[in-house]
Design a protein around this nucleic acid. Structure first.
Length: 595
RNA sequence: GGGGAUGUAGCUCAAUUGGUUAGAGCGCCGCCCUGUCACGGCGGAGGUUACGGGUUCGAGUCCCGCCAUCCUCGCCA
């Protein structure tokens, strides 16, 4: 062992080591210098230890001079004696705060220029802009909070691996270079040098491979797999992300939901020490859209949506009555005790809250403030006598409540109120940023198909390999809109954290489904022939799920920024600000590829 | 592609209606300090107000363009 190599980490020293000579390696977290004495806080990922340099000519003047010269983020090796701190000088904020190391030798392993931002974290400090931090990501990653996020993600991965290993799942790796298949997200493409003009596609998910592994008899498969989709980014979306991909044979929906619930319990226990109650709440897609206006509702707060169409049709309010007569619905949210939180200016047309609805494509927001014995707002004067009281009763209104109403076609009304619900919760502070409240639920009974908004054809809601409910198979073609899928999404606190389905294992049903999607038989065989062939060759019933590891890591570490849980993320324009990728390449490379 | 927000010192932010030499805290440099731990005290350096035009006697501030960053809609089977 070289004499500079550490004997302890910076988080390890306690009373037990007092009197020992130790060597620490780490980075200068901070330095407090006096004429005759210098304190250096040395940091590594395990913690911080205070090192004392004393101006004692008997020891070494060079030692003190070196200590005087070091700056923040220099990488040091310090050898010295562990000493109990002077009485009353312990630092209770440090795990190592009972002791300090009196330096005997120092070796500068590497210097560091003044960093572009401060790595040391102080309570309540403002972080530097994210673009600077991403440019120097290796420095940003020295920050304890980012280290904590990545360590938590590591705990998540390790917990998953041992959980699945104990249940005899087999981890199998599948190709990154695959074939582009129709539908789904935009592919990242890789040109083939050997086959000019032909392209690989990077996987959007290992979907087809895992089904083929079931045909191969692997029974219980998993993979912590990188997935790539060339779509626009969001705070919770990166172009490359990680899925825990799982597939099982000879199972039905309940087997999968139950096992994932067990996994979630184990993960939350291992990562946060929290016991999640099971079974998770289950909500049909239709009910989720009706009550929450979303297929990924956040159940940490109320603000449920109530359909008041029947009431609105007889309310006397012409706008509502005409809307109902034309087939629209009227739905409402009672924002409990929120009347005082929004001014009439914010509520009126053009106001901030009203604009939440109009900007999302709604015609407007109707509102009533509930007061003692009366109602105020823009619309109360239009109603029949007693109509407002009937509405209030319907919504359980009490003085201080704010009633918000929207009229529109059912789908848009759901969407508008769903958006309004999320906005209200944020504005009213119903979602404390840093609490440990988790409300997982399963959304089930999705429609199998949706109309494509541009072309009007049917598209698969989940993906084209999702099995319809057994009782719906006869009416695949005749009653397409009503067909429900054996698909399920796991939602936690408003994030879609996973989704899966029972797959079609009957090649005939699979071909019928392709036909419903408007894919001619020849095309289906050209694109998915390998799957259809495989299904014919003794494919077992199977199904599975994919969990978004990045989103799980976000939820566990309490961040709403996916970049906080990825070591080297891309920015919102899909650029890596550290490496500069994507970047131009040599002309010679392009020529080799025939481009 | 659409909507919104932001861009001033290395970092975080100020700068009143368009008006003097663009300020503060942190960091950095120098000096002082033997118990600090967000050390303290004194002093100092540091600015193409993202960039390019325009209006004006005068622009950080107003207008147009453009770039960058973030949030969002579309998109993400």
């Amino acid at each position: 062992m070289a004499d500079w190599q550490r004997t302890f980490t910076c988080g390890a020293l306690r009373h037990d080591q007092v009197g020992q000579t130790v060597t620490l390696n780490g980075w200068v977290n901070s330095r407090r210098a006096y004429n005759q004495q210098i304190f250096v806080d040395l940091r590594d990922r395990h913690g911080v230890t205070q090192v004392v340099f004393e101006a004692d000519p008997a020891v070494s003047t060079a030692l003190f001079e070196t200590a005087e010269s070091v700056g923040r983020e220099w990488c040091l090796s310090v050898q010295g004696e562990v000493r109990r701190r002077l009485p009353g000088k312990e630092n209770p904020d440090l795990a190592t705060g009972a002791v300090e190391v009196v330096a005997r030798h120092i070796e500068v392993l590497n210097r560091c220029p003044t960093p572009p931002f401060e790595v040391t974290e102080f309570p309540g400090e403002e972080l530097a802009g994210e673009d600077v931090r991403l440019q120097y990501r290796y420095l940003d990653l020295r920050r304890p909070s980012l280290q904590k996020s990545l360590l938590l993600r590591n705990r998540l991965n390790q917990t998953i691996r041992s959980f699945l290993d104990e249940r005899s799942f087999v981890e199998v790796e599948t190709p990154l270079l695959g074939r582009s298949t129709p539908e789904g997200a935009r592919d990242y493409l890789v040109p083939s040098r050997v086959h000019p003009g032909a392209w690989y596609a990077l996987p959007q998910s290992p979907q087809l491979y895992k089904q083929l592994l079931m045909v191969a008899g692997f029974d219980r498969y998993y993979q912590i797999a990188r997935c790539l989709r060339d779509e626009d980014l969001r705070a919770d979306r990166q172009p490359e992300f990680t899925q825990l991909d799982i597939e099982m044979s000879f199972v039905d929906q309940d087997d999968i939901l139950k096992m994932i619930e067990e996994l979630a319990v184990v993960v939350f226990r291992a990562c946060l020490g929290i016991e999640l109650p099971t079974p998770f709440h289950r909500l049909g897609y239709d009910e989720a859209m009706l009550r929450y206006g979303s297929d990924k509702p956040d159940l940490r707060y109320g603000l449920e949506i109530v359909d008041v169409t029947d009431w609105a049709g007889n309310s006397g309010f012409k706008v509502f009555q005409e809307a109902v007569a034309s087939g629209q619905v009227v739905r409402a949210i009672n924002a409990k005790q929120a009347a005082g939180r929004f001014s009439n200016t914010e509520l009126k047309p053009g106001g901030k809250l009203s604009e939440v609805v109009t900007r999302a494509g709604g015609k407007g927001l109707a509102w009533l403030k509930v007061e003692e014995g009366k109602y105020s707002g823009g619309i109360e004067k239009f109603f029949n006598a007693g109509a407002v009281d009937a509405l209030g009763a319907c919504l359980g209104a009490v003085p201080g409540d704010l009633l918000l109403l929207v009229a529109d076609v059912p789908d848009r009304a759901a969407e508008l109120l769903g958006g309004l619900r999320v906005h209200l919760a944020a504005q009213l502070g119903l979602v404390p940023a840093d609490n440990h409240l988790f409300r997982p639920l399963w959304v089930v009974d999705f429609p199998s198909f949706m109309r494509d908004s541009e072309e009007g054809r049917w598209v698969a809601n989940h993906h084209p390999f999702t099995a319809p409910r057994v009782e719906d198979i006869p009416r695949l073609e005749s009653d397409t809109a009503q067909v429900k899928a054996r698909a399920y999404d796991l939602v936690i606190n408003g994030y879609e954290c996973g989704g899966g389905s029972i797959r079609i294992h009957d090649p005939v049903v699979q071909e019928r489904l392709f036909a419903v999607l408007g894919m001619p038989t020849e095309q289906a065989h050209e694109k998915f022939g390998f799957l259809l062939d495989a299904l014919k060759m003794g494919a077992p019933p199977h199904g599975g799920i994919a969990l978004g590891i990045d989103r799980w890591a976000m939820i566990l570490s309490g961040t709403s920024n996916i970049r906080d849980v990825i070591a080297f993320p891309k920015n919102q324009r899909a650029r890596d600000l550290m490496t500069g990728a994507p970047a131009p390449v040599d002309l010679r490379q392009l020529k080799e590829l025939g481009l």
